[in-house]
Design a protein around this nucleic acid. Structure first.
Lengths: 162, 162
DNA sequence: TTGCTACATAAGAATGATTCCTAACAAGGA
DNA sequence: TCCTTGTTAGGAATCATTCTTATGTAGCAA
């Protein structure tokens, strides 16, 4: 999907973001693919037009665009491996604040892969539903404290700020 | 949930795994929690009983148990961040072989969070369904080649072996 | 148009989860 | 009990991501 400089400018302005050539190029590259690239892949591509580009800028820009809601991190939960000895099909509730993961058993959800509109040429072996939101404790905490991050600890906090 | 040494021995034997004290302790710790711990958290806990334990052993053991199907990595897709400029609700098909991510639009899936059996005290903001399996290309490739990993490249391969 | 200010960029160093390498060890079969 | 092979511990290496800092520039105001 092609996206014009004007579209980009409009989107950025709407979020109060400065429009810089690097920033626009990174967003353009991401908006014109459906391949869910890594930061590094984006860097490789954009660097062809901007040889001085630093990987740093890609990380910084993606983080900014993410905060502005213009891009999404597909694998939100990528920071560290999390393990489970429960290998039967089940699903997860993920707290965006304290990052706790709760199990959700819901038989109806287990049937999705037979019902969803998956293209025939993709062979599905399993699936998993992730619900994102706030757990009971974090909802309570939010009534009293400003909304920074992890205020209390069911779980160890992420290794990096965000 | 309590799990006996005998249960552990039985499960391990069934998969042809040696039963070592460290390995049993790591599995026991994981089987007795629903908190989806990180490797480091498991290490912290198990190290209380096995002061000589190395983090290395935890990683190695988890990888072994994972291959044996005794444990699961919750966030399969944790290795590197992947980005998407499509911020509208949609879902993903994830190829276990080449690790490509394909978009899936399915309006019915978008309604799940209103239908699923989520506890009332968890406030759901969004959700996402991930289907795991093999994409068309990887299915074809598997007819000819032994099943190691990434054989062809829609996408850059992971930075580490598995 | 020009100058200012705040935010953006580049470059390099630092961080930290995970993996690699290797030597000593031990489980389990013979 | 002995051997073989997979396991463990320790330390070094890897590499995505973040931090730090100095320089650059977008966008507003005059």
């Amino acid at each position: 999907m092609v996206i014009s400089q004007n579209d980009i400018r409009t989107k950025f302005k709407a979020q109060g973001l400065k429009v810089t050539p690097q920033r626009a190029a990174i967003y353009k590259a991401l908006a014109e693919t459906t391949s869910h690239p890594t930061a590094e892949a984006l860097f490789q591509q954009v660097a062809q037009d901007y040889p001085m580009m630093s990987p740093n800028t890609v990380y910084y820009t993606l983080s900014t665009l993410k905060e502005a809601g213009l891009v999404k991190e597909v694998n939100y939960w990528h920071d560290r491996s999390r393990f489970d000895a429960n290998v039967t099909p089940h699903h997860h509730l993920i707290c965006l604040d304290c990052r706790a993961i709760f199990d959700l058993e819901d038989h109806a959800l287990n049937e999705l892969q037979h019902k969803a509109n998956v293209p025939k040429n993709f062979q599905v072996l399993s699936h998993q539903v992730e619900f994102y939101g706030y757990c009971a404790s974090c909802q309570k905490a939010q009534r009293h404290q400003p909304s920074t991050s992890s205020r209390h600890s069911h779980v160890q906090s992420p290794r990096r700020k965000s």
